[in-house]
Design a protein around this nucleic acid. Structure first.
Lengths: 190, 190
DNA sequence: TCACATTAGGGACAAATGTCCTATGGGGGT
DNA sequence: ACCCCCATAGGACATTTGTCCCTAATGTGA
């Protein structure tokens, strides 16, 4: 749901404060609704969120949207496209006020080539992502909407995350109409 | 669909043939229906497929199965669980005769800590996976079954991959009944 | 070759989901 | 204060999907 990665965040923060990198890794602010990345564009920088909430979403050719995750502190983006030499898979949009570290391509590639701690940290991030993405896909395919929704509401509660109905539906891969029905069913049941 | 990774395979093959590792990284054979990994178990080794086809699947508590991918040459498994210190997320079962390199935990961890080329190669693998897993999830949530099925049939054709109807349904996250209906609709349409 | 298990195919009905449309209730801007 | 936009909520109907069956075909071991 709302992904954060404290250990990766600490690593990047420390890095950004070293003499070598302090003038190369800079903080950037984004207002709500601003885009950090735009689907389909070439990626020219790697971004690590310092603070704030964003939604990562894929728009299909039929106009529908799917939200794999909401990203927050310590989450990295753009690195997959760079390593795979692909254009941007998803758009990332600020939901709240966001600050993020901007890592230039040259710095990212330099770190990849020389810094094994960085490699290890990044690997852990990607491994976690594969894990969660697969688990989410499986869960959503095999359970009822109600069941998935209950889980989502729990997570929202736990993380104090307020998102629109439309985004909730996109996260679940359903329409708002179906979401409303499921919400009604859940509330009427207890 | 059927994932392979030639560059990672070459890397591992070369590694397994060096003096240092030739007695530590060994080939193992699996017959069809044998399990390479079992969901829920602790992971004690990393496996890289040399040859053959496997299916990777998640069984949910309601008994249903979801197949994120079919894995073949050069695909690695078990590494995510080790890096994240988790039990096995999915089961992996041989569909054809399979041979695979078994990499002991100690060797894997040693490589992670010391070999930056290995880190880079692995990172590329995981990045690709996140990319494909997200794309697949989005596609399946937002398009009709028929559309997803057509794509699946294309891929099967291109890769000359023969799988059971049940597995096709699990890959798409639907029941065989729905699969049959979709198949009929497609064939009747042209 | 026969018996049995496994896989494939589909009928009938119930349940879930999407589509289209309408209505309501703030919130922000002028 | 007024208007407009946008998010929310839900009715009505069509379509899709799942569930529970039962048969037909295919393959495998004794």
């Amino acid at each position: 749901m709302l992904r954060i990665n404290i250990s990766f965040f600490s690593y990047i923060e420390t890095l950004a404060n070293t003499d070598v990198f302090s003038d190369k890794i800079l903080l950037q602010k984004y207002k709500p609704k601003e885009y950090l990345l735009h689907q389909g564009d070439p990626v020219t920088k790697v971004i690590v969120i310092n603070e704030g909430i964003t939604k990562c979403f894929i728009t299909e050719e039929n106009g529908k949207e799917y939200i794999p995750e909401f990203l927050s502190t310590g989450e990295i983006m753009g690195e997959i496209e760079i390593m795979g030499k692909k254009n941007c898979l998803a758009s990332v949009e600020a939901i709240s006020e966001v600050t993020a570290y901007i890592i230039p391509l040259s710095v990212f590639e330099h770190l990849l080539k020389t810094d094994i701690t960085f490699n290890n940290a990044l690997l852990e991030v990607e491994a976690l992502r594969v894990y969660h993405t697969s688990q989410k896909a499986s869960f959503q395919q095999l359970y009822t909407v109600e069941h998935a929704l209950e889980k989502l509401l729990e997570l929202q509660e736990k993380q104090q995350l307020k998102i629109s109905k439309e985004d909730m539906a996109s996260y679940l891969g359903i329409t708002t109409r179906t979401l409303n029905r499921a919400l009604k069913k859940i509330s009427g049941e207890e």
